[in-house]
């Protein structure tokens, strides 16, 4: 079962735009392999105001802290560019 984290994190991007690492609980988690982005649409017309985007941006990636065993994480990027660590899949 994934663990809901839902906390802001700092994400470091590589030159080609992929997340390379993120800092969570003061520890750097290094991304391993190719992260996958997933864009999920919203039912924007049910919300107030006119949206600038119709989907939310989620990145699924494997990362490890130091030499520890890697976990799979979901990172969400907000419209303002800030990042939320959404899930820890274990």
């Amino acid at each position: 079962m994934p663990q809901i984290i839902d906390t802001p994190v700092d994400v470091e991007l590589s030159a080609d735009g992929d997340p390379r690492a993120f800092i969570w609980n003061r520890f750097e988690h290094t991304v391993i392999g190719q992260p996958q982005a997933v864009f999920k649409r919203t039912r924007w017309w049910e919300n107030e105001g006119t949206p600038t985007r119709i989907d939310t941006e989620l990145w699924r990636l494997d990362a490890s802290r130091g030499g520890e065993e890697q976990h799979r994480y979901d990172l969400r990027r907000n419209d303002d560019g800030s990042w939320i660590l959404a899930l820890d899949w274990g």
Binding site: F39, K40, R41, R53, I54, D55
Partner: peptide, 8 residues
């Protein structure tokens, strides 16, 4: 029935 899957 078939909205665009997302905005990409």
């Amino acid at each position: 029935e078939t909205p665009q899957t997302n905005g990409q």
